[in-house]
Each structure stands twice: as C-alpha cells, then as structure tokens.
Simulated scan of single mutants.
Amino acid sequence: MTQATAADTREMIISAAFACFRTRGLAKTTIVDIARTADVSRSTFYEYFRDKETIVEACAEAASQRFYRNMATAIDRHGGSTLEGRLVRAAVFVAQARRVVEPEVYFDHEEVNLMLTKNAAALLRECAEFLAPYVAAARVTGEVRNDLDVPTATEWFARMLFSLFTTPSPYFDSHDEEAVADFVRRYAVAGFVENRSKRS
C-alpha cells in the first residue's frame, strides 16, 4: 500500500467514524459499525487505530483542525483590522460553535468534558498558538502595550474562550452575539492595553 493510499484509508475511516457518531451517537457506535461504514475489514481498521478511544481522539483532532480553519475564516471576514474586532469575532465564533454542535446526536456532554479535561494542556496551548499571531501583530502596530507577553496573554484569552464553550454565563446570554461581543470588548482586550491612569 502506498503512503498516499494509506493516508486516504485513514481519512476514510475517520470520515466513517464521524458518520457513525452522528447517526448512532458516540457511546453506541462500535468498531464494527465504523469498519462497515468505511467499507474496510476490522483488521484494516486495527492497522490504523488501536481501539475506539484512538479513533475518537483522531476525530477530535480532525474536528479541532477544521474548527480553527473555520474560526480563522470568520476572523478574517468579520473581525476587521483591529485586535479587538478579531478577538470579539473569535469569542462569538466559539459561543456559536457550542450552540451548533450541542444538539448533535454524537455530542456527549460527559465525553466532551472528559476530553477537554484529559487533553486540557494540549488544547490550551493549541488555542493560544492560534491566537498568538493576531496579538503579536497588534503589539507591532501599537494597539497593545509593547511589553505585553504574547504567550501568557494568549493563554489567558484562550482560557476565556474555553470557559465560553464549556460554561454558560449567569450574567449574560452567551447565545446573544452582541452580549458576547460586549463582554469581550469591555473586559478582555482591556487587559492588553496600557493602563492610561499611569500615563503622565
């Protein structure tokens, strides 16, 4: 089997797993279901994935990559040229993403919470690294203070995005785009700019 064919087969199995999770749910889907949907044998499945947990992790990684591609598109199309606009759009995108995926059959609250906890450090780093170029560019243009530490600043904002996805606010409607945008404008970006009260 050539390398290209192997990659294609792996992607085909992942796509089949997504299809099964959507129709049967995460808990009820079996390896046999996935192999049958992918039109491969169980032995072929095991050439690529050790067990159900590893195919779930592969699906999560594929979903994460697609998530960041879509978020980058949303930021580029609707975030404007300022860091504030871009971070607002990122937050709105995350809040909307939860509303979109939650009704899906495959969205298992316990499984999602377990994965977010188990892979928290890696997911947090991935999100912070995604945000870093936007914040670094804003530091160059003077939109944020020049002594801002980009890695810790983006980690802080990534933590805020994670909370928007996992925990509804008791104070504003996270389904309301303007409420989310106002929350970010009022509090999030303020931490990145110079404290004006200290200016002479």
Rank of each mutant, 00 (worst) to 15 (best):
residue 1 M to T: 14
residue 2 T to V: 03
residue 2 T to K: 13
residue 6 A to P: 02
residue 12 M to E: 14
residue 13 I to H: 12
residue 13 I to E: 11
residue 14 I to V: 15
residue 20 C to H: 11
residue 21 F to H: 09
residue 21 F to W: 12
residue 23 T to Y: 02
residue 31 I to P: 00
residue 34 I to S: 11
residue 36 R to V: 06
residue 39 D to V: 07
residue 40 V to T: 09
residue 43 S to T: 14
residue 47 E to L: 12
residue 52 K to T: 10
residue 52 K to L: 12
residue 59 C to G: 15
residue 61 E to R: 10
residue 62 A to I: 03
residue 64 S to K: 00
residue 66 R to Q: 05
residue 75 I to F: 01
residue 75 I to C: 04
residue 76 D to E: 15
residue 77 R to H: 09
residue 79 G to R: 01
residue 80 G to Q: 01
residue 80 G to I: 01
residue 80 G to N: 01
residue 84 E to Y: 04
residue 85 G to Y: 00
residue 88 V to I: 15
residue 91 A to Q: 09
residue 92 V to G: 00
residue 96 Q to I: 07
residue 97 A to S: 14
residue 98 R to P: 02
residue 98 R to H: 15
residue 98 R to L: 13
residue 103 P to L: 11
residue 106 Y to P: 01
residue 108 D to S: 14
residue 109 H to Q: 11
residue 110 E to Q: 08
residue 111 E to P: 02
residue 111 E to V: 02
residue 112 V to S: 04
residue 112 V to F: 08
residue 112 V to G: 02
residue 112 V to N: 04
residue 116 L to A: 07
residue 119 N to Y: 11
residue 127 C to K: 09
residue 129 E to P: 00
residue 129 E to G: 02
residue 132 A to L: 04
residue 134 Y to I: 02
residue 136 A to P: 05
residue 138 A to W: 01
residue 139 R to K: 15
residue 140 V to C: 01
residue 144 V to I: 15
residue 145 R to K: 15
residue 148 L to K: 02
residue 150 V to L: 07
residue 152 T to N: 14
residue 154 T to F: 07
residue 155 E to C: 02
residue 159 R to G: 13
residue 160 M to E: 05
residue 163 S to T: 10
residue 164 L to T: 08
residue 167 T to Y: 03
residue 169 S to P: 07
residue 172 F to Q: 05
residue 174 S to W: 05
residue 176 D to I: 10
residue 179 A to M: 10
residue 188 A to F: 04
residue 189 V to A: 05
residue 189 V to R: 01
residue 192 F to N: 07
residue 195 N to Q: 15
residue 196 R to A: 15
residue 196 R to I: 14
residue 197 S to R: 15
